[in-house]
Amino acid sequence: MEKEKDHIIPYRTFLYVLALLIALTLTSVAITQIYLGTLTVVIALLIAAVKSSFVLRIFMHLKFENKIISIAVVAVVLVLAAVIFITFLDYLYR
């Protein structure tokens, strides 16, 4: 039986990503302690988005999987973003 070779991610890569994720977490805690108004929300969510992209691409192997899964993930995120956008349009301009 022919089996396509699965990509093996070295242990090192995971440890680098972990260090980065912890650094980003501490950064977002530190930044939100400073009062920046609406900017705080934007920065905190931006950092969360960066963190989740690392989790999706490296931990969840998306970088090495069939592209179709990545496309589907992006599609789900876009659907969610569209629903959030439309809901807020409704609340802001009703």
Binding site: T32, A44, I47, S52, V55, F59
Partner: peptide, 15 residues
């Protein structure tokens, strides 16, 4: 883990 990455800033950090 991914869900917690969003729950944490939304409930704890953004004050």
């Amino acid at each position: 883990d991914l869900i917690w990455i969003f729950l944490f800033p939304l409930f704890y950090l953004i004050t």
